[in-house]
């Protein structure tokens, strides 16, 4: 089992200028993750997949996480053990995160957790798509686009996956408000009216 820190060093050895940051996870699962800069993500992903020592050929899980802007509750450093993550989260401005869980089917190790962050939650929500590296990300990135509104550059077919095309908004965002009850009763009213006309 290779640790996230070892993978980080391995990648930095091959690509010294890649933006790669270790995010530690202090809960009992001990699954640390690597935060990769958006502009380096495709290159780093290809390296992770093709490197003979890593061979992370299988991208299992892709998902989004919403981190809205939050006031700082505990100053970083003074948080008790196990609470450091909240201090980090609270101290930074809001963003969306995309999390990839990678495994190696040929070498049978993993998970390696790869994360990317958008610059904010409003107008700068583009991230590079990793579908060209791992085909398994295709539907899952579509789902993240659908439910979180993150746009993936380089995705071959970026459409909504679960909600219908006419749907407005992104329901998994923490600040999403469900529509009024009248609209819920007739979710396809707009589409039907258009057909009648």
């Amino acid at each position: 089992m290779i640790s996230a820190e070892q993978i980080r060093e391995h990648v930095l050895h091959a690509r010294p200028d890649a933006g790669l940051e270790l995010i530690s996870n202090l809960c009992p699962s001990c699954q640390d993750s690597l935060l990769v800069a958006a502009e380096d993500a495709v290159e780093v992903a290809r390296l992770l997949r093709d490197d003979p020592e890593l061979r992370l050929d299988y991208c299992s899980n892709v998902t989004g996480v919403d981190w809205p802007e939050r006031p700082v509750r505990t100053p970083p450093g003074s948080a008790p053990a196990g609470q450091r993550m909240r201090a980090e989260v609270a101290a930074r401005p809001g963003c969306f995160e995309v999390v990839y869980h990678l495994f190696s089917m040929s070498l049978k190790h993993g998970p390696v957790v790869l994360r990317m962050r958008t610059e904010n939650r409003s107008d700068r929500v583009r991230l590079p798509s990793l579908t060209p590296i791992w085909h398994s990300a295709e539907f899952q990135e579509r789902e993240v686009f659908d439910l979180y509104g993150i746009r993936f550059d380089g995705h071959p077919d970026l459409r909504r996956l679960l909600m219908w095309e006419e749907f407005e908004g992104h329901p998994m965002r923490k600040d999403y408000l469900p529509p009024a009850e009248d609209d819920v009763r007739e979710p396809f009213a707009a589409a039907r009216n258009r057909m009648v006309q």
Partner: peptide
């Protein structure tokens, strides 16, 4: 109330 952190399990 699990401690702060994350886990992927399959």
């Amino acid at each position: 109330c699990p401690p702060e952190g994350e886990a992927y399990c399959r």
